[in-house]
Amino acid sequence: MQVLYFAWVRERIGLPREEIETQAATVNDLVAELMAREARYEMAFADTSALRVALDQELSEFDAPLEGVREVAFFPPMTGG
């Protein structure tokens, strides 16, 4: 699946998007997989309460299932307007 990062999450991880092969059942499982990879992911995901997640471009929750999802995006709370 495509995993996208925005704002300071993108800066901490060092890339805007990547293709990830995963069997993760939920967003939380995917986060755990990513954090186990490298320190920069651990840094970015240290406090998921400070993060938001979108599944296929819809806001979602960290306990949501990933089955059938093609695009996951992680970002800090939005600051539009």
């Binding site: 704002a7 979108a54 970002f75 939005m78 600051t79 539009g80 307007g81």
Partner: peptide
């Protein structure tokens, strides 16, 4: 809603 539900980030 634009403030906190539209995916924009200001720096």
């Amino acid at each position: 809603y634009l403030k906190s539900r539209a995916p924009f980030w200001k720096k």
